[in-house]
C-alpha cells in the first residue's frame, strides 16, 4: 500500500468578492484522524475559507478534494452528505424547535426514518453531554450549551471531517477546557477535525498540524510547533498580538 491518502486536499483555493481578494492561493492537506488548526488574526479569511470548503460560497480559483473526490462546486447539502460537516461561528439554533429536534434535522441526513433519526440525535446529544437537555426549547440554552448543540448537530450528520469555527470564543476558562476535552473525545472516536481558533495555546495543545492565514494569504503550514516558530508568523500575528 502506498502512503495514506489525505482526507482533505485543498489546492490553490482563492475567493474574491468583487475585486477584493478575501482568500488567495491556499493549499494544504488534512490527513485522516488528525486535528488540524487554522490560525490567523481577525479578517484573515478563516471563515471565508470554511464557507468555501462547505459549499456555501463558490470558489474563485482552485480545487477541493474530500477523500479523493472533488467537492468544489457541489451544493452544501451534497458536501455534507459526503462527510464534511461544519459549525458556524455565530450559533443560531432553529427557532421554535427543541434541542432534540434541532439535532434531529441533522440526523435525518443519514437516517430518513423519524424514529431512527431521533435515536441517533439522542446519541449525538449524549456525545456532547447534553442528553438531559433534549426537550428544552433550544433558544433557552446558555452560550456554552449552544456551542455544544452546534457540535451535536454537526456530528449527527456523521461526518468524517468536522470543521469547527471559533467554538471557544467567549467561553470561560472552565467551559473552554470542557469543550476542548469533548473535541478531543470526538476526534478519538474517529472524526477528523479542522478548527479555526484565536487562542494559540489551545491550537498548540490540540493540533498536530496547522496553517496560518494573514490577509487571505497562507503564511506558513506544517507541524503546529514549527509553524508557530516561523519568523513571519511571529511578526505578522503573534508579534503584534504580544505587543
Amino acid at each position: 500500500m502506498s502512503a495514506p491518502q489525505p482526507l482533505l486536499a485543498v489546492a490553490g483555493l482563492g475567493k474574491s468578492f468583487g475585486g477584493l481578494k478575501a482568500v488567495s492561493d491556499v493549499s494544504f492537506t488534512v490527513m485522516p484522524g488528525e486535528i488540524f488548526g487554522i490560525i490567523g488574526p481577525n479578517g484573515a479569511g478563516k471563515t471565508t475559507l470554511f464557507n468555501c470548503l462547505s459549499g456555501l460560497l463558490p470558489l474563485s480559483a482552485g480545487t477541493v478534494h474530500l477523500d479523493g473526490r472533488r467537492i468544489d462546486g457541489l451544493r452544501p447539502h451534497e458536501i455534507c452528505r459526503l462527510g464534511l460537516a461544519r459549525t458556524f461561528q455565530i450559533v443560531r439554533p432553529f427557532h421554535g424547535m427543541s434541542v432534540l429536534e434541532n439535532v434531529k434535522v441533522a440526523a435525518f441526513a443519514r437516517h430518513p426514518a423519524s424514529a431512527a433519526a431521533e435515536q441517533h440525535a439522542r446519541l449525538a446529544l449524549g456525545r456532547v453531554g447534553m442528553a438531559h437537555l433534549a426537550d428544552l426549547d433550544a433558544e433557552r440554552l446558555s452560550v456554552a450549551e449552544m456551542r455544544r448543540l452546534e457540535i451535536a448537530r454537526a456530528i449527527a450528520t456523521e461526518p468524517r471531517l468536522l470543521l469547527l469555527d471559533e467554538m471557544l470564543a467567549g467561553l470561560t476558562a472552565t467551559e473552554a477546557a470542557a469543550l476542548c476535552e469533548q473535541i478531543r473525545r470526538i476526534n478519538a472516536e474517529g472524526v477528523t477535525i479542522m478548527m479555526v481558533e484565536h487562542s494559540v495555546p489551545i491550537i498548540s495543545e490540540l493540533c498536530g498540524n496547522a496553517i496560518v492565514l494573514n490577509f487571505g494569504e497562507m503564511l506558513a503550514s506544517g507541524a503546529t510547533r514549527a509553524v508557530l516558530d516561523d519568523a513571519q508568523v511571529q511578526e505578522a500575528y503573534l508579534g503584534s498580538a504580544a505587543s
Partner: peptide, 8 residues
C-alpha cells in the same frame, strides 16, 4: 445552516 446540515 440547514443546507450545511444536509438539507437539500
Amino acid at each position: 445552516a440547514a443546507e450545511a446540515l444536509g438539507v437539500p
